Simulated scan of single mutants.
Amino acid sequence: MPETSRLTPIAVMILATLREADMHTYELVRLLKERRDDRLVPLQKGTIYHTVARLERDGLLAEVGVDRHGNRPERTTYTLRDAGRRAVEEWVRAELPQIDRQSDFRVALSEAHNLERDEVVALLDQRRAMLEASIGEHRVGLEEAAARDTPEQFLVEVQRQAALLAAELAWQDSLRARLADRTLPWGVAEIPEHIKNKHRVSRETFA
Rank of each mutant, 00 (worst) to 15 (best):
I99A: 03
F105N: 08
E89N: 14
W91K: 00
G84P: 00
I135N: 07
E63G: 07
R93N: 14
D118R: 14
R128V: 06
E119I: 00
L115T: 01
G70T: 03
T79P: 12
A108P: 03
R72V: 04
A112Y: 02
T77S: 10
A83N: 11
V66R: 13
R68A: 12
I135Y: 11
G59F: 01
E74T: 13
T76K: 13
E119T: 00
T76F: 06
Y78Q: 08
D58H: 13
F105S: 08
E90Q: 08
Q126N: 10
S103P: 04
R106L: 15
P97M: 10
H69I: 05
M130W: 13
E111L: 13
T76G: 09
S110I: 15
E63H: 11
E132M: 12
G65W: 11
G59Y: 02
D104T: 04
E74V: 13
V107W: 10
R85W: 12
P97Y: 10
L115V: 03
R68S: 07
D67N: 09
E74D: 11
G59R: 10
A129N: 07
P97E: 09
R81C: 12
V121I: 15
V66D: 10
R75T: 15
D58N: 14
A87V: 11
R127K: 15
L115H: 02
P97F: 06
V66P: 05
A108W: 02
P73Q: 10
R85L: 05
L123E: 06
F105Q: 04
L109K: 03
R57W: 02
R54H: 07
I99F: 04
R101Q: 12
T79V: 08
R75K: 09
R81P: 07
L96D: 14
A122V: 09
A83G: 08
E95Q: 05
R81Y: 03
E95V: 00
P97I: 11
W91G: 00
D104L: 14
D82R: 08
L124D: 00
G84R: 00
N114V: 12
S134L: 06
D100E: 15
D67M: 05
R54P: 02
R57I: 02
R75C: 11
V66F: 04
N71H: 05
W91V: 02
A122G: 12
A53Y: 13
L131P: 01
P73M: 11
A108E: 03
V64T: 15
R86D: 04
R85P: 03
D104W: 13
R85S: 11
H113K: 15
Y78V: 06
E116N: 11
H113P: 05
L124V: 01
L61E: 05
S103A: 15
E119V: 00
E119C: 02
G65M: 09
R72G: 07
V120P: 00
N71D: 09
E56T: 12
L55H: 04
D104Q: 14
R93H: 13
R54S: 08
N71L: 08
D67E: 13
R127A: 08
D82C: 06
Q126R: 15
L131I: 01
A53G: 11
R117G: 03
D82T: 12
A112K: 05
R68C: 10
A94Q: 04
D104M: 12
A122T: 09
W91A: 02
E89M: 10
D104K: 14
E132A: 11
V66Y: 08
R72I: 02
